[in-house]
Amino acid sequence: MTLKSWKELPIGCVVSEPGSASEYHTGSWRAQRPIWNNDKCIKCGICYVFCPEGCVQQSEDGFFKANMDYCKGCGICAHECWPRAITIVEEG
């Protein structure tokens, strides 16, 4: 994403393209990442519901994974997953 100069900003910084927030990749904030262990997963979808980024998606096999462009590594999915199928590991 190229950054605009002050002269190119729309008046009042009105955002006129719906959904343009998706251009901003919050994944760049991440210091930790969630790892799914599908052996423990019961496909309840709690991680999908609780992820504040809405970046947890269900795959065709019914298991879940995060879109790492947007996963901030907040750990909420791991905290909420009661069968303990998600662990949080340090990034990098």
């Binding site: 950054l3 605009k4 100069s5 002050w6 002269k7 900003l9 910084c13």
Partner: peptide, 9 residues
Amino acid sequence: DYFTEIMKA
């Protein structure tokens, strides 16, 4: 990344 440009504008 944008706050300065917005203040300038």
